[in-house]
């Protein structure tokens, strides 16, 4: 028990040290594969600004045809959203919030949260999105997945999969599925 009169500094000293909850961070500089073999470094992997200059008036680079083809191969199956719902029109290396605020790719969760507040709240109370480590942060840290670890931003439906484990259920085998 702390004494009745404690300064804030005292209380902070008595508060148990807490380990952090670390949310995995998406790449702040996502690359795109050109689909074209190039002899300069890094081959095949390009930052958004390599082509999309900060000024929208920049002339389209000569290899744009290939890239147009590549970008068109992106599957966008996300409600009726268009590229501009999420990507900043002026600087393609940024995302855009509904109020026009530019945010980095590493902060994309703020953008998801804007349109999916309920899932975001579930995430905050630990009921949506995986975790590993400690339930007790006085004893160790906890790692958490980011939305884009499980949902492709462009086609976010969670994939179906085959169940992992062969089930041989003694009880149900004996009793039959209808108990």
């Amino acid at each position: 028990m702390l004494p009745a009169q404690v300064s804030e500094a005292d209380a902070a000293e008595h508060a148990p040290h807490l380990y952090p909850v670390i949310i995995s961070s998406p790449d702040s500089d996502p690359q795109t594969l050109s689909g074209v073999e190039m002899d300069w470094n890094p081959p095949n992997s390009l930052s958004c600004r390599t082509c999309h200059r900060v000024t929208a008036a920049e002339p389209t680079p000569p290899w744009s045809e290939d890239l147009r083809n590549f970008h068109m191969e992106l599957t966008i199956l996300h409600g009726d959203l268009t590229c501009g719902s999420c990507h900043d029109g002026d600087d393609h290396a940024e995302l855009t919030m509904a109020n026009g605020e530019e945010i980095g790719f590493e902060d994309s969760m703020r953008q998801c949260a804007q349109c999916h507040p309920h899932e975001m709240q579930s995430f905050e109370i630990g009921a949506h999105g995986g975790m590993r480590g400690h339930w007790d942060l006085t004893r160790g840290p906890r790692e958490r997945d980011h939305c884009v670890d499980c949902h492709d931003a462009h086609a976010p439906a969670y994939p179906t999969q085959m169940p992992l484990f062969p089930v041989r259920d003694r009880f149900l085998d004996e009793a039959g599925a209808d108990e």
Binding site: G126, G129, G130
Partner: peptide, 28 residues
């Protein structure tokens, strides 16, 4: 030991919530 249960850590969807019922700030 303060760690999360194995089934929870293995869950790829994050459907499982575990914690201390006597800590009002816990996720559970």
């Amino acid at each position: 030991d303060g760690r999360l249960p194995a089934c929870l850590e293995a869950c790829p969807t994050g459907a499982r919530v575990f914690g201390d019922l006597r800590d009002p700030n816990s996720e559970i």
